[in-house]
Nucleic acid binder design. Structure first.
Lengths: 204, 204
DNA sequence: ATAATGTTTAACCATTTGGTTAACAAAATT
DNA sequence: AATTTTGTTAACCAAATGGTTAAACATTAT
């Protein structure tokens, strides 16, 4: 069968549709029929390409995990300075999530529903390598280059500041009255303002 | 009927059970049977006390909203200084959520599923009153008491730092290897460390 | 005692939902 | 051109699920 150019293969259409529906309604709330409709195909085709709802879900999830995590790991393992790492992380993270804004909610959700299974699936049984970054921070603290700060707390804070706007988008938009474009602009801005915020708070 | 002391009325048992199940499985994933089992009663009793799944959900949600929001509003409308407000907010917020750790996920979730309806239900059609706090910040910026900072961004950052650990608990625990007690201690600590973090980052 | 009211249960029902089947269409292979 | 393989669909099925009903049980009022 000749693939029709761009949004070609049924498989891709399904994956795109499934992503959309899964994030909108959650894994449990998503209906195979919804996904089929969204993809503009018959429901049985879903089962032809991906045997079950769970398989479909897993496929999408695997894609996400493999796309996101290595680049983050690379940054923390690089030879950059603390400040540079924070800047690189925020840029990389926000950039990536801007392309797939549904991921944070998706991950947080499944994470909380299947704590053991999902976390292991996400990280493939080996934890993210933060050792280098952690010792880097501890050293900087000793040398009094930065304030006394627990490395893990710094990492949590950095993550928090990057992810939260994506999770809380509806509230933020409603409270602030931002439209889509303005909201996106704000996120763009945060690629720079968040690292600044963090760096200010730890610098001596 | 004489209520049997503490975990008495069936109604309360249902509400407790429903909270637990709703947060664990999400609104869509929660099964009435699960809730009934968790409460140790018959499924039909759920419908006797709360007519439908939606009603039950709404009841729980209303409880939460009414308990949380006013106190936050009070803080931002008070005569405290910026730093004091940030400190008060973080303490109040983390304290409250420590009592009901499931709320953030719950809110974020429903928020994203029913953007219009839920946000309005949560805030009862009137946005939180941030005006006073915002002008307070703008004034401080003018007087160069604090760094140039967009008030909304500051609020978002504060929220982010308070909520995120609750949302990401499973990952954090897994990555850091903290047990329940240690995790709770960390949250206790953040009641003080988060305000410090924020205040450091904005002070001139 | 008994009626009336409130609480709880088992059995049941209609609908929804993930998944299957068999038939049909379109490519690819021979 | 014939046939095998791949892609697609409509109709169907069994299980799960939210919700109902009628009857049993308990509690209080008469």
């Amino acid at each position: 069968m000749v693939k029709n150019g761009k949004d070609c293969s049924t498989e891709e259409k399904i994956l795109e549709a499934a992503k959309k529906v899964f994030i909108t309604k959650g894994m449990a709330g998503a209906r195979m029929q919804d996904i089929a409709d969204e993809a503009g195909i018959n429901k049985a085709l879903l089962h032809y390409y991906f045997r079950s709802k769970d398989k479909l879900f897993e496929t999408i999830f695997a894609q996400i995990a493999q796309r996101f995590l290595p680049r983050i790991n690379d940054i923390f393992n690089s030879e950059l300075s603390i400040n540079e790492k924070i800047e690189a992380f925020c840029k990389e993270y926000i950039d990536n999530v801007l392309k797939n804004p549904f991921i944070p909610l998706f991950v947080i959700n499944e994470m909380n529903k299947q704590p053991e299974g999902f976390v292991k699936k996400l990280f493939g049984n080996e934890k993210p390598q933060l050792d280098k970054f952690i010792t880097q921070i501890n050293n900087a603290v000793k040398k009094q280059e930065i304030k006394q700060v627990h490395p893990l707390q710094l990492i949590i804070n950095t993550m928090a500041l990057c992810v939260f706007p994506f999770l809380a988008k509806p509230i933020i938009q409603w409270v602030s009255g931002m439209n889509q474009t303005e909201f996106r602009a704000m996120l763009e801005d945060r690629k720079k303002s968040v690292p600044q915020f963090i760096i200010h708070s730890i610098k001596n």
